[in-house]
Design a protein around this nucleic acid. Structure first.
Length: 220
DNA sequence: GACCAGGCACATC
DNA sequence: GATGTGCATGGT
């Protein structure tokens, strides 16, 4: 008997096909995007990234030299721009000071060590840390977001009050530890979440509609 | 005009 | 330790 989570994955992949995440041109761009997308629509993040590129500052050293107010102005379309400018600065400072801006040095670290260091950076929480580890560095860690929580709760896989680490453990415990699988599954959960599993659900046509579920979610 | 988006830190009780 | 709030733009 195949686990329900694996059934979800098959149904989503069959319905949507591969998502080709993360839509960034370089690992550094993915790191920046991971901060910019915090609680923000991706289309707004794309605008912010395009502005950084147009200004020629989507580069570790150049970004680091920008005045916070100037950086904030570039990323304005992503929302929370003053906050995110500071968070980006903390991230690039850590990357330069601790690892001399070397992606290879980051990749040599264990997932556990990398995750602990990222979580210690002000403004980098579990989802942002896991996104960087999986999508920028191609190392295995399952990324959880609000859609993952909502979908698994509505399908009775987890209690509504479960926290990030419980959701992550639930998923990692039922899946093979595999970077392409983690990559694709998270992207597919976001896709189905955007289309059908919002606070006000639209279940009609959802590829998970045939699975046991409810839309009652006291946390929404 | 209300709702929503690929979170996180911090204040308050 | 649970719960609430600030941060902010832009599409639907």
């Amino acid at each position: 008997m195949q686990d329900r989570l694996q059934q979800f994955y098959r149904a989503l992949l069959r319905h949507y096909g591969p998502q080709h995440w993360w839509p960034g041109e370089s690992p550094f761009e993915v790191m920046v995007g991971a901060v910019l997308t915090q609680n923000t629509n991706w289309t707004n993040v794309e605008k912010a990234i395009a502005r950084l590129k147009a200004a020629g500052v989507l580069d570790l050293q150049r970004l680091r030299r920008l005045e916070p107010a100037v950086l904030a102005e570039y990323i304005r379309p992503a929302g929370y721009y003053n906050l995110k400018a500071r968070r980006l600065r903390h991230l690039v400072d850590w990357f330069c000071e601790r690892y001399d801006g070397s992606l290879a040095a980051l990749r040599r670290l264990s997932v556990g060590r990398l995750r602990a260091e990222l979580l210690a950076i002000h403004g980098i929480g579990p989802e942002t840390a896991d996104s960087i580890i999986l999508y920028a560095l191609a190392k295995p860690t399952f990324v959880v977001d609000t859609y993952t929580h909502r979908i698994l709760v509505r399908h009775h896989c987890l209690d509504a009050d479960c926290d990030y680490e419980q959701i992550k453990s639930y998923c990692e415990g039922r899946l093979e530890e595999d970077v392409p699988l983690y990559n694709e599954f998270h992207a597919l959960l976001v896709q189905v979440g955007k289309n059908h599993c919002r606070p006000r659900p639209r279940c009609a046509g959802c590829p998970l509609e045939s699975f046991d579920h409810t839309v009652e979610d006291p946390n929404d």
